[in-house]
Design a protein around this nucleic acid. Structure first.
Lengths: 269, 269
DNA sequence: CGGGTCAGTGTGTGACGTACACAGTTGTGG
DNA sequence: CCACAACTGTGTACGTCACACACTGACCCG
């Protein structure tokens, strides 16, 4: 029984944390700390040192308190990271319905990209579960609303949203990989890129990796440090193809079935 | 100077490890352990306990040796994880050139999906850098070769490959999130899914999340535990749209510029 | 004004990664 | 053939980590 409660408890605890649904005590001394301060300090550390450099002691030290004092506000480090993820996500971009859905999605992806550049450690934490926090849900809502009006069903909208989120996150991960190792090892980022290219050359066997050698020779890895570095150009390309494909899909379906089961028939606000 | 060497050293060390480029010593006792045995044991543990349950002591214990003995074969835990990633990746699928490129890519994605199901912990480790190991490079080569013949440039092929890899990985991450937390907390996976749905209901504000509530109401989250669970259906949809978009793109470009700068003009082996 | 409630502290524990010195084993050069 | 050098696995030790628990002292309400 206790074991069964653990999971629900953990979810509930995280929920209370993320949504601030804690009834404030009236008795007792006034809290000198707060969840917001702790999360903010933790994010600053993670921004500077990466997720590996984040420890409860560092957070407490930065705030001028003892390590254990944090546990009055956070049940554990995992939950703190959850809260950090939600806080660092921030509010999603405003996507006015007046713009076309293609514009909206492009802006959504770009905003996500910017967030990852601001807090690269977000790419390092393994999601401990499905999105729960208000900001994370707001981002999901934002991407779904961006897809509203495409003519996709609700299910398809979710699929596309998750697909796109995964692609953007994965590319961001690749993009910052070089910078990550640079920060991790203390080597300047340019050297990492050069080393990587050199290593690829050292290791690449034209017989085993014919296409890859061709791609490398074409300079696809060149512009920056790691693979897929250069700004968001690589992401842009895949995104445009995906949106083209969605357009074609909707066109073909509406041709076959003029007023289908599309969920976007319901009112726009 | 030493600091500069660190990065290159680390890369070189990883390379030596991953590619087995170590000159064997002639003197000294015969090694009772081996990198392969260590990596295999570590993968078994990670398969069973997840990446958090993996420790050097556990690996050593499973092999019947002391913890420190491992460090004769592996410079550190990070490098061990790198080696695990490459080993668990295994060889990429064989994609005969006779099939169309759409078929090849679909099979590539499906094979990747299967790998993630076999070793879910792969989704939990943060990539410590760009792909270096022979298997990882082979997977990249495989996806690139699958895209050969589309008419895309070398650069575009790489973009698509990374985009698709990211999308598949991200969706797999979402897909296994519920199972992950289930394993983490000891709660059966079905309960996690039910809890999540219940929590979404508890938290969802129709005013703040209109589209999301509609999607939830449409049952898009229903079929399984976490979001995007059901087999690979969600991945399939996005994939088909992406491939459609690529098709259209190539068609339009060849119409404009019949024999373009496509890199796939060079021989197909 | 006194008792229950709560904030922050101090101490302690077990697990972890790994540096280091060492003992035992093995092939090789003198 | 043998001493030495190279190498393997072990034992011990250190620093760090997340976190449990008992405690002191501040605060509010009856």
């Amino acid at each position: 029984m206790a074991a069964e409660h653990d999971g629900a408890d953990r979810l509930s605890r995280s929920l209370d944390l993320l949504w601030g649904s804690k009834d404030k005590p009236s008795r007792g001394p006034k809290p000198a700390l707060s969840l917001e301060k702790i999360v903010r300090a933790a994010i600053e550390i993670a921004d500077a040192e990466g997720i590996d450099g984040l420890s409860m002691q560092q957070v407490a030290g930065r705030l001028g308190f003892t390590t254990m004092s944090l546990y009055r506000y956070v049940p554990g480090k995992d939950q703190l990271v959850d809260a950090m993820m939600d806080a660092a996500s921030g509010p999603p971009p405003q996507l006015p319905a007046a713009e076309g859905w293609r514009n909206r999605i492009e802006r959504w992806v770009q905003a996500l990209w910017v967030r990852y550049q601001q807090h690269p450690w977000m790419l390092q934490v393994q999601a401990s579960g499905p999105p729960l926090g208000p900001n994370q849900l707001a981002w999901l809502e934002s991407s779904l609303s961006a897809l509203d009006g495409t003519g996709l069903t609700a299910e398809e909208m979710l699929f596309v949203s998750l697909f796109l989120n995964g692609a953007a996150t994965g590319l961001a991960r690749h993009s910052t990989a070089a910078a990550q190792t640079a920060a991790h090892t203390g080597v300047p980022a340019e050297r990492v890129g050069a080393d990587y290219a050199q290593i690829l050359e050292r290791v690449l066997d034209t017989d085993r990796f014919p296409t890859l050698t061709r791609v490398v020779a074409a300079g696809a890895f060149r512009p920056g440090a790691g693979p897929g570095e250069g700004t968001t150009h690589d992401l842009e390309f895949g995104l445009q193809r995906l949106l083209d494909g969605i357009e074609r899909y909707v066109e073909e379906r509406t041709a076959t079935c003029p007023l289908g089961t599309s969920a976007s028939a319901t009112g726009p606000v």
